[in-house]
């Protein structure tokens, strides 16, 4: 489904602020893989995800989705295949526009907009049904501006929007990190439901080790721009935080600076 071949990214090359964010990373995802991504602050997790989404070009390597080389595609063209939820709940929706208008835009993700009416009444029933699955009462608020929603509601809506048109790849970058614990758990539950029910190929960054172990069928850990740990299947199922820390020490030759990661 997704094939990443030897990609690298250095920010501000040749200056004093030069920063190597990804070093020769390769990663293959099978269809339906639900991969959780962990790693300390600055490990390169977001850079990996933004490279796939096309936020910036990579320095070398190839990114292939479903046998199509998208390495040179601009960000907006990649949206045809990729659904995204950002860490910042404000980033995934347009605050000044209604829930309905936001969903109408998401419902034609990847298509060139035309002069047809943007939010036809015929779509409302479909939007309402979709919103109902979130269990947040948003189905009654189709005409509310998104800016009136809470962070958690916006994040749940963004998740729904990102999957309204089935993406070949779903990218979630710490999408629960800015929420309070209760809301975060709620949004994570919705995520699990959507991803597993529809077998979406997904990369989910999280700073919460427990979530990373509990969700998905595969886990990767990034460190200093490299994939340090990659466990899947049965091995992942039985993995504990202690195992993970031991694996990290062995692979990195140092103790994990766990300040940035929630161990519990």
């Amino acid at each position: 489904m997704l094939r990443i071949e030897n990609i690298a990214k250095t920010f501000n090359p040749g200056t004093i602020t030069e920063k190597i964010a990804l070093r020769d990373v390769s990663l293959h995802l099978a269809p339906g893989d639900f991969v959780t991504v962990i790693g300390g602050n600055g490990a390169g997790k977001s850079t990996l995800m933004n490279s796939i989404a096309g936020t910036f070009p990579v320095d070398k390597g190839k990114i292939i989705i479903d046998n199509e080389d998208i390495t040179k595609w601009p960000e907006h063209k990649r949206a045809r295949y990729i659904g995204r939820v950002f860490q910042d709940p404000m980033m995934g929706t347009a605050a000044n526009m209604q829930i309905e208008e936001n969903m109408a835009i998401a419902a034609r993700r990847g298509k060139t907009p035309t002069l047809r009416w943007s939010a036809p009444a015929a779509q409302q029933k479909f939007f309402r049904e979709q919103l109902k699955t979130l269990n947040l009462g948003l189905e009654e608020r189709l005409e509310s501006k998104v800016g009136l929603l809470s962070g958690g509601q916006r994040q749940a809506l963004t998740l729904l929007m990102a999957t309204l048109v089935e993406p070949k790849l779903l990218l979630l970058d710490e999408h629960t990190a800015a929420l309070d614990p209760k809301t975060a758990a709620q949004v994570l539950a919705i995520t699990n439901e959507i991803v597993t029910k529809r077998h979406l190929t997904t990369l989910m960054i999280t700073h919460n080790m427990k979530d990373a172990l509990a969700c998905g069928n595969r886990l990767i850990m990034l460190h200093d721009g490299k994939i340090l740990i990659d466990v899947k299947g049965e091995e992942k199922k039985s993995l504990t935080i202690k195992d993970l820390l031991a694996m990290f020490e062995k692979a990195a030759g140092s103790e994990l600076n766990s300040d940035a990661l929630l161990l519990s």
């Binding site: 949206a79 980033m91 347009a94 605050a95 835009i105 907009p113 035309t114 002069l115």
Partner: peptide, 20 residues
């Protein structure tokens, strides 16, 4: 229209509309 909505979304949140 769809194009008009895309222009409004661009002013409001360019990340969102590019991601779409």
């Amino acid at each position: 229209t769809e194009i008009g909505a895309a222009i409004r979304a661009t002013g409001c949140n360019p990340h969102m509309i590019r991601a779409n």
